[in-house]
Simulated scan of single mutants.
Amino acid sequence: MPAYHSAFNDPKTPLLCNAAFLPIKTTVKGPAPPAGRDDVDIIDEAIGFFKANVFFRTFDIKGPGDRILIYLTLYIQQCLSRLEKAKNRGEADRLLNTLALEKFPTPADSSFALPGIYTCSPGEEEKFRQYYTQLRLEVGLRMVALVFKDDQPNKWWMCFSKRKFLNKNL
């Protein structure tokens, strides 16, 4: 069975470091263009495909949307690992906000987890950091809302905290 791929793999999509630069539904400030409230954005797609895609050890990239999907899948896995330490929703918000704002490697860094997938020109690195920080903050908000609906961690999400997508960590 093949992995689920992004619906945002249009070759005409604007690119940032060889990945799609897509609009997202968010209140977090950043460079991403706003998406409509009823539109499905890349974050909705990544969360929706996470439970199925996390079982795959390989992933064929079909376009620029898949590059973001891979990164967000790895980031969601990292969020779930952090949420294991949270006892309630308030603590979970704090943990994921801290995680999103931590300094993370960009494709220009040697410690970047996905070196062959992204290619950044020197002028794109700062915009990449801003856009992916915005994505990380929004993913954190949505994951807390999903995992801590009743102020207790949802076991059907937390059971995926030990899985590794593509045998990688961010």
Rank of each mutant, 00 (worst) to 15 (best):
T27W: 01
D44C: 03
R163H: 14
K62H: 15
I24T: 08
K62W: 13
D39H: 09
D44Q: 06
P31M: 00
F112N: 05
N53M: 12
N169H: 13
Q134A: 07
A86N: 15
T27N: 08
E91K: 11
R136V: 04
E45Q: 10
R82K: 13
G48W: 08
P31W: 02
N53D: 15
A100K: 00
A52N: 15
E138M: 03
M1K: 14
E124Y: 02
N9S: 02
E138N: 10
S111L: 03
V147P: 09
R67A: 01
G30C: 02
R82L: 07
R67G: 02
D93Y: 08
E125P: 04
I61G: 06
E91P: 11
R136K: 06
T133A: 10
S81K: 15
L146P: 06
K25W: 12
D41H: 04
W157V: 11
F112T: 03
F104T: 08
M1V: 11
Q134M: 05
I117N: 01
A46R: 01
K155I: 12
R67D: 01
N169V: 13
T73C: 06
A100P: 03
G140V: 00
A52D: 15
P2W: 14
C159D: 15
G140C: 00
L72N: 09
A86K: 08
R163Q: 15
T13Q: 10
L74N: 03
P23V: 08
N154T: 10
E45T: 08
T98A: 10
L16Q: 04
Y75L: 00
R82T: 11
I68V: 10
G90Q: 14
R37Y: 07
R129E: 12
D66F: 05
N167W: 01
A46N: 04
